[in-house]
Amino acid sequence: MSLLLIVSVLWALSFGLTAQVSGLGAPFVTAVRTLLAALVFLPFLNLKGMAPKRVAAFAAIGALQFGLMYLLYIASFRWLRASEVALFTIFTPLFVTLLGDLLERRSTGRVRLAVAVAVLGTGICVWPGLERTGLLCGFLLMQGANLCFALGQVLYRREAPATGRPDRELMGLLYLGAAALTMAVAAPWIQWHQVAALSLRQGAVLVYLGVVASGLGFFLFNAGARRTDLGTLAIFNNLKIPLAILASGLVFREAIDWPRLALGGVVIGFALALNGFSGGRP
């Protein structure tokens, strides 16, 4: 559980930082993040004795959990503020529990109730901005990203123990799958003169997002996911939200309606409690 807590702190600044480079385009930023993360763990990659089908399966999990997720996530910044992006990740733990229950053929009635309560809490937080153009599009992009991230977590948690390998030997394979997907998507859109014109600040932000937030962060998160139950994993998916919104308001000076956010947060917290009760079984 301590690993998941560390990651939540690491990710607190990533929403605001991602907003600062999202103008470079979701495909480019995603490709850089996943490629840097792959390079970090490439020295630890060990495929010896691993069946080709299993290699392909983990690469596919990485392409889903990191590659497609980031493409959708970064694209949402075109329509959403960083604090809104952070808030809309609220549904990830509900997806984690729902998908885990479906794969394990368990009852999901309480999860549906938790989803409804979380929708109410999110609505309280964003109701004044519902008339804003593009808000719905950004919201839907974020839910696609949440679903990809949740499914990747559940699949990795199910498949990794069977390999008998430590997480550091598997993460490079996941990142390579993500990098292959994102590089293929980004290649037709990359304008090299824009890449050459990157500022030092933009370069530093991309390195932090790729090496620390993505590389180290997802390694620790997936390692923690293997060592905890679904309910705890689901709840820790959302610990980053209050931290990220605080960072958006205090560090990046984004305008935030604190009373409304607090009220919505209380309702969302209740949804998390419901979700924890439904997903806390080992």
Rank of each mutant, 00 (worst) to 15 (best):
S2W: 14
L4D: 10
I6N: 09
V7N: 02
L10T: 05
W11S: 02
A12F: 01
G16W: 01
L17I: 10
T18H: 01
A19Y: 06
Q20W: 09
Q20M: 11
V21G: 03
S22V: 13
G23F: 11
P27C: 05
F28P: 01
T30N: 03
T30D: 00
V32K: 00
T34F: 03
L36Y: 04
L36I: 10
V40N: 08
F41I: 08
L42I: 12
F44W: 12
F44V: 11
N46M: 04
G49C: 04
A51L: 11
A51W: 08
P52R: 15
V55Q: 15
A56L: 15
A56M: 15
A56F: 11
L64Q: 00
L72Y: 01
I74G: 06
A75R: 12
R78T: 12
W79H: 14
L80A: 10
A82E: 04
A86N: 08
I90H: 02
F91N: 01
V96M: 01
G100H: 06
L103K: 11
L103T: 08
E104L: 15
R106N: 14
L113E: 03
A114V: 07
G121A: 10
T122H: 04
T122L: 10
P128V: 09
P128F: 03
P128N: 02
R132E: 13
R132Q: 14
R132S: 11
T133Y: 05
L135M: 13
L136Y: 07
L147Q: 00
C148H: 00
F149I: 02
F149E: 00
Q153C: 11
V154W: 05
V154K: 11
V154C: 07
Y156R: 03
R157N: 13
R157I: 14
R157V: 15
A160W: 11
P161T: 12
R165M: 08
P166S: 05
D167V: 15
D167S: 15
R168C: 13
M171K: 10
G172C: 11
L173F: 04
L173P: 07
L174G: 06
G177C: 06
A179I: 05
A180I: 12
T182D: 04
T182M: 07
T182N: 09
M183A: 15
A187P: 01
P188L: 11
W189E: 14
Q191I: 15
Q194V: 15
Q194K: 15
S199F: 04
L200A: 07
Q202L: 04
Q202T: 08
V205E: 08
L206E: 03
L206F: 14
S214H: 14
G215Q: 07
F218R: 05
F219L: 15
L220P: 06
F221L: 09
F221Q: 10
N222I: 14
G224N: 03
A225C: 03
A225P: 01
R226W: 03
T228D: 07
L230N: 08
G231I: 03
T232K: 07
T232D: 06
L233C: 02
I235G: 00
F236T: 11
F236N: 02
N237S: 12
N237T: 12
L239N: 08
L239K: 11
S248W: 06
S248G: 09
G249N: 08
G249C: 08
V251Q: 04
R253K: 13
W258V: 12
L261V: 10
L261E: 06
A262T: 06
A262D: 01
A262N: 04
L263Y: 07
G269I: 13
G269Y: 10
A271Q: 09
L272S: 09
A273N: 07
S278N: 12
G279H: 05
